[in-house]
Amino acid sequence: MVLGIIDLRLFQHVAEMDNPFSIIAFIYTWQTLISGVLALTAAMGTIHVMNLQRRDEWVKHNDRIYRSSLSARAKMPDAIDDISLYFKACFEFIKEGLSDFPKQPEKSINVLKESIQFLDNNSAEMIYELIVFYQIYNARLKSHSESRGTVDKDDIYFDTIKINSMNLNIFDFARNREKVISKRKLNRDDLKRSIIDLIGFMNWNLNPANKDFEKHLECIVEIRCPS
């Protein structure tokens, strides 16, 4: 702007003078460099302000995700309990040959689906596997019901034991006792714990047949689960 006001010939005249320390001569000689430095400084200032804005937006974004994650985790215990009751109802449905199909816990399943986006990779994958198998399980259970006993009952027993065990694996995480869901294959011990959860601790003195039934379920597990 200054260079536009002052006659450039004056700059040239001063620059040709013997005084090499003249400020005007210095500006005239290095005007391109000075302009570049000023432009660079302005650009760096702009970038700094933009970085501060982005950092502020990132913090707010993380806060929103964190609160959404807490909201999802807060809903999980009730959802897991509801799903567990469904599997117990399915177990009773199979065992007693009931006609009324258990009501599916769709709202609770949706809670798990929504929670996936806020979880760590391992936990998200384990819940995803539960949801996928839940869909497969319902199809098999319906097929078993419609087949009127022609489908192997032990197969659907095993599926019920397995999916209940997958659900039990999420309990501690849902109750915030664990930070992540352990990503591992189910073993016999997991499945046998699932049997106890499904049938409860039966009073064998009053009903000895209950002990035989539990042993039958354990045999199903041992046949279908090598280790």
Rank of each mutant, 00 (worst) to 15 (best):
A15H: 14
A15W: 14
E16K: 15
P20R: 15
F21D: 13
I24H: 11
A25C: 12
I27G: 10
I27F: 15
W30D: 11
Q31S: 11
Q31M: 09
L33W: 12
I34D: 08
V37G: 08
V37E: 09
V37I: 15
L38A: 09
M44Q: 09
G45F: 01
T46W: 08
I47K: 01
N51K: 12
N51H: 10
Q53A: 07
Q53N: 04
Q53L: 05
R54F: 08
W58P: 06
W58A: 13
V59Q: 11
K60L: 07
N62K: 10
D63F: 08
I65N: 06
Y66H: 12
S68R: 14
S68N: 14
A72I: 03
K75D: 13
K75I: 05
P77L: 00
A79D: 04
I80K: 01
D81N: 08
D82F: 10
D82E: 14
I83S: 05
I83E: 09
L85T: 07
L85Q: 12
L85K: 11
L85V: 06
L85F: 10
Y86P: 06
A89S: 06
C90D: 04
C90Q: 06
F91R: 07
F91A: 14
F91C: 10
F93M: 02
F93R: 02
K95E: 03
D100V: 10
F101E: 02
K103G: 11
K103W: 06
Q104W: 08
P105V: 04
P105C: 03
K107N: 13
S108C: 01
S108L: 01
V111T: 14
L112E: 02
L112M: 05
L112H: 00
K113S: 04
S115V: 03
I116Y: 00
F118R: 02
L119P: 00
L119W: 04
D120G: 06
D120F: 04
N122C: 05
N122E: 07
N122Y: 07
I127G: 00
Y128K: 12
Y128H: 11
L130S: 01
L130P: 07
V132Q: 12
Y134G: 09
Y134A: 09
Q135C: 07
I136Y: 13
R140C: 07
R140F: 09
L141V: 03
L141K: 01
L141S: 01
K142L: 12
S143V: 06
S143L: 11
H144T: 03
